[in-house]
Simulated assay, not measured.
Amino acid sequence: MKLSKRMQFLVKNGLKGMAWLLLILAAYFLFKEVVLSRTPDAWVDQIYARPLLVYLVYCFSEFFFGIFPPELFMIWAINKDTIPHYFMNLTFFAVVSYTMGYLTFLIGRYFNTHASLKYFKKNMLKEVWPQLKKYGLFLIIVAALTPVPWSAVCLLVGSAGYPSKRFLKYALFRLLRFAIYGYIIYQTHVF
Protein backbone atom coordinates (compact mmCIF):
# COMPACT_ATOMS: atom_id res chain seq x y z
CA MET A 1 0.00 0.00 0.00
CA LYS A 2 1.41 3.37 -1.04
CA LEU A 3 1.35 6.04 1.67
CA SER A 4 0.73 9.67 0.83
CA LYS A 5 3.63 12.08 1.22
CA ARG A 6 2.07 13.53 4.36
CA MET A 7 1.72 10.10 5.96
CA GLN A 8 5.29 9.22 4.94
CA PHE A 9 6.43 12.44 6.62
CA LEU A 10 4.46 11.59 9.77
CA VAL A 11 5.74 8.01 9.95
CA LYS A 12 9.35 8.93 9.16
CA ASN A 13 9.52 11.70 11.75
CA GLY A 14 7.49 9.73 14.27
CA LEU A 15 10.06 6.92 14.06
CA LYS A 16 12.89 9.42 14.50
CA GLY A 17 11.15 10.81 17.57
CA MET A 18 10.70 7.34 19.02
CA ALA A 19 14.40 6.61 18.42
CA TRP A 20 15.25 9.75 20.40
CA LEU A 21 12.89 8.65 23.16
CA LEU A 22 14.66 5.29 23.38
CA LEU A 23 18.02 7.06 23.50
CA ILE A 24 16.81 9.33 26.33
CA LEU A 25 15.43 6.35 28.25
CA ALA A 26 18.69 4.44 27.81
CA ALA A 27 20.67 7.46 29.06
CA TYR A 28 18.35 7.75 32.05
CA PHE A 29 18.68 4.10 33.02
CA LEU A 30 22.46 4.25 32.53
CA PHE A 31 22.63 7.35 34.73
CA LYS A 32 20.42 5.67 37.31
CA GLU A 33 22.61 2.55 37.42
CA VAL A 34 26.03 4.21 37.28
CA VAL A 35 25.57 7.45 39.24
CA LEU A 36 22.42 7.29 41.34
CA SER A 37 22.96 3.76 42.60
CA ARG A 38 26.34 4.74 44.10
CA THR A 39 25.41 8.06 45.74
CA PRO A 40 21.64 8.39 45.61
CA ASP A 41 21.19 10.48 48.73
CA ALA A 42 23.48 13.27 47.59
CA TRP A 43 21.60 13.70 44.30
CA VAL A 44 18.13 13.25 45.69
CA ASP A 45 18.58 15.61 48.63
CA GLN A 46 19.93 18.37 46.38
CA ILE A 47 17.05 18.18 43.93
CA TYR A 48 14.12 17.44 46.23
CA ALA A 49 15.05 20.19 48.67
CA ARG A 50 14.24 22.83 46.02
CA PRO A 51 10.95 22.05 44.25
CA LEU A 52 10.34 25.67 43.22
CA LEU A 53 13.67 25.64 41.39
CA VAL A 54 12.64 22.44 39.61
CA TYR A 55 9.36 24.05 38.48
CA LEU A 56 11.19 27.16 37.24
CA VAL A 57 13.74 25.07 35.34
CA TYR A 58 10.87 23.14 33.77
CA CYS A 59 9.08 26.32 32.65
CA PHE A 60 12.34 27.74 31.28
CA SER A 61 13.07 24.49 29.46
CA GLU A 62 9.61 24.32 27.89
CA PHE A 63 9.92 27.90 26.66
CA PHE A 64 13.47 27.57 25.35
CA PHE A 65 13.21 24.63 22.97
CA GLY A 66 12.84 21.81 25.49
CA ILE A 67 16.37 21.81 26.85
CA PHE A 68 15.40 19.08 29.31
CA PRO A 69 12.90 16.39 28.34
CA PRO A 70 9.65 16.52 30.35
CA GLU A 71 10.09 12.86 31.25
CA LEU A 72 12.93 13.81 33.61
CA PHE A 73 10.53 16.04 35.52
CA MET A 74 7.92 13.29 35.55
CA ILE A 75 10.48 10.94 37.09
CA TRP A 76 11.34 13.61 39.64
CA ALA A 77 7.65 13.97 40.49
CA ILE A 78 6.98 10.25 40.88
CA ASN A 79 9.87 9.95 43.32
CA LYS A 80 9.00 13.09 45.25
CA ASP A 81 5.79 12.38 47.12
CA THR A 82 2.47 10.55 46.99
CA ILE A 83 0.67 9.27 43.89
CA PRO A 84 -1.97 12.08 43.91
CA HIS A 85 0.89 14.58 44.12
CA TYR A 86 2.47 12.91 41.09
CA PHE A 87 -0.73 13.32 39.06
CA MET A 88 -1.04 16.96 40.12
CA ASN A 89 2.55 17.54 38.98
CA LEU A 90 1.86 15.68 35.74
CA THR A 91 -1.15 17.91 35.08
CA PHE A 92 0.93 20.99 35.87
CA PHE A 93 3.69 19.85 33.49
CA ALA A 94 1.19 19.16 30.69
CA VAL A 95 -0.58 22.52 31.04
CA VAL A 96 2.72 24.42 31.19
CA SER A 97 4.00 22.60 28.10
CA TYR A 98 0.81 23.32 26.13
CA THR A 99 0.82 26.96 27.27
CA MET A 100 4.50 27.53 26.52
CA GLY A 101 4.00 25.95 23.11
CA TYR A 102 1.18 28.38 22.38
CA LEU A 103 3.27 31.30 23.67
CA THR A 104 6.15 30.42 21.34
CA PHE A 105 3.59 29.94 18.54
CA LEU A 106 2.38 33.51 19.16
CA ILE A 107 5.97 34.77 19.13
CA GLY A 108 6.38 33.03 15.78
CA ARG A 109 3.20 34.71 14.53
CA TYR A 110 4.63 38.07 15.58
CA PHE A 111 7.84 37.35 13.67
CA ASN A 112 5.77 36.35 10.64
CA THR A 113 4.65 39.97 10.32
CA HIS A 114 8.06 41.44 11.12
CA ALA A 115 9.87 42.81 8.05
CA SER A 116 13.27 41.25 8.83
CA LEU A 117 11.81 37.74 8.99
CA LYS A 118 9.94 38.27 5.74
CA TYR A 119 13.29 39.09 4.11
CA PHE A 120 14.89 36.04 5.77
CA LYS A 121 12.04 33.75 4.60
CA LYS A 122 12.16 35.12 1.07
CA ASN A 123 15.91 34.73 0.63
CA MET A 124 17.05 31.94 2.93
CA LEU A 125 14.11 29.60 3.41
CA LYS A 126 12.26 29.84 0.12
CA GLU A 127 12.34 26.05 -0.41
CA VAL A 128 11.52 25.08 3.18
CA TRP A 129 8.61 27.45 3.83
CA PRO A 130 6.10 25.86 1.44
CA GLN A 131 6.82 22.44 3.00
CA LEU A 132 6.36 23.89 6.46
CA LYS A 133 2.96 25.24 5.48
CA LYS A 134 2.03 21.97 3.76
CA TYR A 135 3.13 19.65 6.58
CA GLY A 136 2.43 21.96 9.52
CA LEU A 137 -0.35 19.76 10.90
CA PHE A 138 1.84 16.66 10.89
CA LEU A 139 4.79 18.54 12.29
CA ILE A 140 2.65 19.70 15.22
CA ILE A 141 1.45 16.15 15.91
CA VAL A 142 4.95 14.64 15.66
CA ALA A 143 6.43 17.31 17.95
CA ALA A 144 3.56 16.96 20.41
CA LEU A 145 3.92 13.18 20.75
CA THR A 146 7.68 12.67 20.48
CA PRO A 147 10.86 14.19 21.94
CA VAL A 148 11.17 16.56 18.96
CA PRO A 149 11.69 20.06 20.45
CA TRP A 150 8.11 21.21 21.03
CA SER A 151 8.58 24.94 21.42
CA ALA A 152 10.93 25.16 18.43
CA VAL A 153 8.30 23.52 16.23
CA CYS A 154 5.62 25.83 17.66
CA LEU A 155 7.79 28.84 16.83
CA LEU A 156 8.34 27.64 13.27
CA VAL A 157 4.69 26.79 12.69
CA GLY A 158 3.63 30.16 14.09
CA SER A 159 6.12 31.99 11.89
CA ALA A 160 4.71 30.14 8.87
CA GLY A 161 1.35 31.79 9.53
CA TYR A 162 -0.44 28.61 10.61
CA PRO A 163 -4.00 29.36 11.88
CA SER A 164 -4.26 29.74 15.65
CA LYS A 165 -7.42 27.67 16.11
CA ARG A 166 -6.01 24.75 14.16
CA PHE A 167 -2.76 24.94 16.11
CA LEU A 168 -4.58 24.89 19.44
CA LYS A 169 -6.68 21.92 18.33
CA TYR A 170 -3.77 19.79 17.12
CA ALA A 171 -1.54 20.87 19.98
CA LEU A 172 -3.89 18.95 22.26
CA PHE A 173 -1.87 15.90 21.23
CA ARG A 174 0.71 17.29 23.64
CA LEU A 175 -1.63 16.50 26.53
CA LEU A 176 -2.04 12.97 25.19
CA ARG A 177 1.73 12.58 25.26
CA PHE A 178 1.84 13.54 28.94
CA ALA A 179 -0.95 11.10 29.72
CA ILE A 180 0.79 8.22 27.94
CA TYR A 181 4.31 8.95 29.16
CA GLY A 182 3.04 9.72 32.65
CA TYR A 183 1.27 6.37 32.77
CA ILE A 184 4.39 4.54 31.55
CA ILE A 185 6.54 6.25 34.17
CA TYR A 186 3.92 5.49 36.82
CA GLN A 187 3.86 1.82 35.85
CA THR A 188 7.66 1.51 35.83
CA HIS A 189 8.32 3.33 39.11
CA VAL A 190 5.49 2.33 41.45
CA PHE A 191 5.90 -1.02 43.14
Rank of each mutant, 00 (worst) to 15 (best):
Y135C: 08
L103A: 14
P84Q: 02
L139Y: 06
Y170L: 06
V142Y: 03
M100A: 06
R109Q: 13
F68L: 11
L52W: 04
S61Y: 05
I78D: 02
I75R: 14
F9A: 09
N123Y: 09
L72S: 01
M88G: 04
T39R: 03
F173L: 07
L172T: 06
L10K: 08
K126Y: 15
Y86A: 04
K126C: 15
R50H: 10
L137M: 10
D45I: 07
W150K: 05
K121Q: 14
F105K: 02
S61N: 04
L30P: 00
V11F: 11
Y181W: 05
T39L: 01
I184F: 07
S37H: 04
E71P: 03
F87P: 00
V57C: 03
V11T: 07
K80F: 09
L53W: 12
F63M: 09
Y135L: 14
I107K: 12
F167N: 02
V157D: 10
A94N: 01
V54P: 03
S151P: 02
I78W: 03
S37L: 03
T113K: 15
S151A: 11
P84A: 05
K12D: 12
F87K: 03
N13L: 14
Y48Q: 09
L168K: 04
L139P: 00
S159Q: 09
L10T: 10
S159A: 11
F9S: 09
W43F: 09
T82E: 12
P40T: 04
K169I: 06
K126A: 13
L36Y: 02
W150Q: 07
L25H: 01
T99V: 06
R50C: 11
Q187I: 03
G108D: 14
Y102V: 09
L106K: 14
P40C: 10
T146L: 08
E62V: 13
L30N: 02
P51E: 08
I67V: 15
V128Q: 14
L15R: 05
T104Q: 13
F105A: 05
V190G: 00
I107F: 14
T82W: 05
G161F: 05
S164W: 10
Y86M: 04
V11L: 09
Y162F: 14
P69Q: 02
L3G: 12
L117A: 09
L56K: 06
W150F: 12
G101Y: 01
K16W: 10
K133S: 14
I78K: 07
S116W: 13
I180H: 00
Y58G: 00
I140R: 04
V128G: 11
Q46Y: 12
S61C: 03
L53T: 07
V153N: 00
M1L: 11
M18F: 02
L145S: 10
L125R: 10
G136W: 11
L155Q: 11
V54M: 10
E33H: 00
I107Q: 06
M74T: 08
P163Q: 07
H85D: 12
K169L: 14
L168G: 06
A144S: 15
W76P: 11
V157K: 10
V153E: 00
G182C: 01
P130G: 10
I67C: 13
T82M: 09
P69L: 12
P163V: 01
V35C: 06
I83T: 07
F93H: 02
F111Y: 14
S97K: 01
S159F: 15
M124T: 12
A77F: 05
G161H: 06
T39N: 03
I140K: 05
A115V: 15
S151E: 01
F87T: 01
R6D: 15
L52T: 08
Y183H: 03
V148H: 08
A94H: 01
